[in-house]
Design a protein around this nucleic acid. Structure first.
Length: 336
DNA sequence: CGCGAACA
DNA sequence: TGTTCGCGG
């Protein structure tokens, strides 16, 4: 998913407490999808309420955001609008991959074989899950921003304007959209299980700074976008046997995408339009980000009465949340 | 993933 | 006080 520029970019490890006092625009789709695919039972079934509605994402939002806010961070969630037309093929492909994974999961269950990875791959973020997420975030006092198109583009725009300090996403796309700083692995606990075996590794939050990387690589943002396009994005397939390293070499050698493609006698359909989409995406300045007090009653009613969460656990989280917001506001008061 | 009980 | 592990919904 997204542009795979990981091999090209240097990251700076940080700690959650370094995010204190910072505004973070969270790529909602990316984060919720992560929750949905990872917060599951041993057999791969996501957490569900009594009526069978999925609740993994709500658990993720409640506890992780409480932790972040407790660490002093300020958070806004940015939701996707309509996908660009160029994304159609990618979306169709993902739908197909999902339904194949669904079949494999069914088969694994019938034969009593482990099917966790198929369950993960069949994750689908439904409309009701999106609505539930917005409802919980609102009750928690976390601002929700609706992007006209790509959430990462909107989040990057907010960061460029200085309304937020960082964009949070596992993908690198926000950098191509111009986000000055992207934070990845924004989890609280360090240890994470490796996909394959029962091996645990330390996963630290990390920040990638766009300007720093551009000057280190000796390229401009436009060229980084072109490197992404050569490797493949959500909007195009990319050249065969060309990864980030090769693409960087080609762009350095030839200066821009058109010349690099010409030199290799290759073409990429709609390359110029896709580059334009990254450099000047549809975004809006019609958003408000301000921290509100969490509505304890709303959170408890929703999660406990409607989604079968444990009142004890939710109550505990809500108390921490209220304390975090109170502390955050009084800290702010000291400055003004 | 994150919580919290159990355990060292 | 720190780590492990099963459950949460």
């Amino acid at each position: 998913m997204g542009v795979d520029l990981g091999d090209l970019l240097e990251r700076e490890n940080i700690e959650i407490k370094d995010l204190s006092g910072r505004w973070i625009a969270v790529d909602a789709f990316n984060t919720l999808y992560q929750f949905l695919s990872i917060i599951r039972q041993q057999d791969g079934t996501p957490l569900r309420d009594g009526s069978g509605r999925t609740t993994s994402h709500l658990s993720g939002i409640l506890y992780r955001m409480t932790n972040l806010l407790e660490a002093g961070a300020k958070v806004a969630f940015v939701f996707d609008g309509d996908p660009p037309s160029f994304k159609r093929e990618t979306l169709d492909q993902r739908a197909e991959t999902r339904s194949r994974a669904e079949e494999m999961w069914e088969r694994a269950k019938e034969e009593g074989l482990p099917g966790f990875k198929y369950a993960q791959a069949s994750s689908r973020l439904g409309e009701e899950m999106i609505a539930d997420s917005k409802r919980l975030l609102d009750a928690m006092g976390i601002p929700v921003v609706q992007a006209p198109s790509e959430g990462e583009a909107q989040a990057a725009f907010m960061a460029i304007r200085g309304d937020v300090d960082l964009v949070a996403s596992q993908d690198y796309d926000a950098l191509l959209f111009g986000a000055p700083k992207v934070v990845r692995n924004m989890a609280v606990t360090g240890k994470r299980k490796l996909p394959g075996k029962n091996v645990y590794v330390d996963v630290m939050p990390e920040v990638i700074s766009l300007d720093k990387e551009l000057s280190r690589l000796g390229i401009e943002r436009r060229q980084l976008v072109e490197i992404g396009i050569m490797c493949g994005t959500d909007y195009n397939e990319g050249l065969r046997r060309v990864g980030p390293k090769t693409a960087l070499k080609l762009i350095r050698e030839h200066g821009d995408l058109e010349r690099a493609l010409m030199a290799r006698c290759e073409t990429i359909e709609s390359a110029a339009e896709i580059r334009g989409l990254f450099l000047d995406p549809p975004v809006t300045d019609d958003y408000v980000i301000e921290t509100k007090k969490p509505d304890a009653e709303k959170i408890l009613r929703f999660l406990c009465d409607e989604r079968d969460f444990s009142p004890e656990r939710v109550d505990k989280a809500v108390k921490r949340l209220q304390e975090a917001v109170k502390v955050g506001q009084s800290t702010l008061d000291k400055w003004f």
